[in-house]
Design a protein around this nucleic acid. Structure first.
Lengths: 198, 198
DNA sequence: TTGAACTCAGACAGCGCTGTCTGATTTACT
DNA sequence: AGTAAATCAGACAGCGCTGTCTGAGTTCAA
């Protein structure tokens, strides 16, 4: 079993073990963002542990990737919930959601690429379910109210939203746009892409 | 030197060699679309040749990837030129360009991912230059005329355009939208993303 | 028809990765 | 203070890949 969030049913984990788990997950995300094929050796180096220590916590590379991805989606889900997507006009709610999530989502592009390549599309969809379940209602009510174009499936809008956020993040990483300008730009671009034409 | 397009300066290539080169490039594109890490063994299998035959024409894996990518960008450049991006209103020209290129561009996502991961951003930019040189004037004149939003760099619009096309193609490959509906949808989504709000 | 270009069919070496192992050492919880 | 949890520091085996090689056989252009 991979390292799991501690529960009262398990013996307490030593503090240094808990610290190492966080460092391993952080290092994995960073290494994989730089190189989709980053090795366990490279991840261990960045985490400041020996390779065998990773295997203590995550018996295989895939289990490590699953853990990093689960953590990422959990964080995004929390950010979306905090943006309160059900409240107010769909366009306003979409603004809040994009502002709340674009930076995080952009960082997770590598994980999306890796899991998309590795898993079946059902597995990928299931992994995204926590996030999709929060966003689909917003897209649907926007389509119903006439704020968003309704001649495409709601899934289409979500795919376009995620693609634009990843592209925006790439522009920032490439240094072509600064972070502050990018926030206004990605918000406007997303709204333009989803909104029903006037 | 990698297998190059035949010129009068070179001895004529045998017909079966020419056929194999085309099949190798086709097989490489197909295999890499399915798996970014597709092996030379897999590419040879799909091409119906032995591995050593690929090495006769492309001494390294990277040279093969370069050849596939060069061919892809050449095709896209031709499709863009055929769409006549300098003619007419910017929105109309953008429609023509998207209609002419979205299917091809969508198929080359794997190559973009691979070369982006491998090369420096200068190298990637240089590789895209033939395509960017044709599209940047369209974006700039659209920004100048007020048709496209001008509060972001022209590069921003191009990145968003390409991201949306790739996402659209992924929706079609996933079977969530059919090809015909996707064309109308991607055109509308791109125009919405780039256009200055009314 | 001839002969060079081209391909085939393996075999081989080297590399880097993943996962496992073990005894020694360190950390930290009770 | 004691001791179990955790980590370290390599070493090891197996795997699959890339690139190279060679002699035999096939293809095709002149």
């Amino acid at each position: 079993m991979a390292a799991a969030k501690q529960t009262s049913a398990q013996p307490r984990r030593r503090a240094d073990a808990q610290r190492n788990i966080e460092r391993i997950l952080d290092a994995a995300l960073e290494a994989l963002t730089d190189d989709l094929d980053a090795s366990m050796t490279e991840i261990a180096r960045r985490a400041g542990v020996v390779r065998a220590t990773i295997y203590v916590h995550y018996p295989t590379r895939d289990e490590l990737l699953d853990a990093v991805t689960a953590r990422a989606f959990s964080e995004i889900g929390e950010a979306i919930a905090a943006a309160d997507p059900q409240r107010g006009e769909p366009i306003d709610a979409l603004r809040r959601v994009v502002a709340a999530t674009w930076r995080k989502l952009g960082r997770y592009h590598a994980l999306v690429a890796i899991t998309t390549a590795r898993d079946t599309s059902e597995e990928v969809h299931e992994r995204h379910a926590g996030v999709l379940d929060q966003l689909l209602p917003l897209v649907r009510r926007g389509q119903h109210s006439g704020a968003f174009r309704a001649d495409v499936p709601a899934d289409w809008h979500l795919s376009m939203l995620i693609a634009l956020i990843h592209a925006a993040s790439a522009e920032v990483r490439a240094g072509r746009v600064d972070d502050h300008d990018a926030e206004a730009a990605v918000t406007a671009t997303v709204i333009g892409a989803l909104a029903r034409p006037a």
